[in-house]
Amino acid sequence: MTDKHDEFGLNAYFDAGRKAAQIPSGDLMARVLADAKAQQMANVPAPAAQPGLFASLWAAIGGWPTAAGMVTATLVGIWIGISPPAPLEQITAEVLGDTDDAYLVDLLPAFGDDFVEG
């Protein structure tokens, strides 16, 4: 910018200086453009891949957290079946009683009399 008053008599030098700017070499422009492209590749995030059928199903049932819960529950169930803990056996005995007892239940006693009586 030229000084309107040119108090120090420098305008001619500044004018000359503006016209004598260093011109970028072709090599510099190529390097800058190469940097631009390399950085652009690094900056732009890769587009997310579409999930496949298995991945969709997997996500639908809740993914890894759900699978972990299901596996744990299954293993605990199998273990209890193989080796039930003592308190559980006691409860089973109290609720169901002695499983060796046999009961004879006459579901329709009245019909028997009808047949006998004709």
Binding site: G17, A21, Q22, I23, P24, L28, M29, V32, L33, A36, K37, Q40, N43, V44
Partner: peptide, 26 residues
């Protein structure tokens, strides 16, 4: 440029590199 436009990269390089270089050289 940040959105991946190659023309923008070229336009910015052509527009700004001479200015940056001139100032640095002085």
């Amino acid at each position: 440029y940040a959105n991946g436009d190659a023309d923008a990269a070229r336009a910015l390089t052509m527009r700004l590199t001479p200015m940056v270089l001139g100032y640095a050289a002085r």
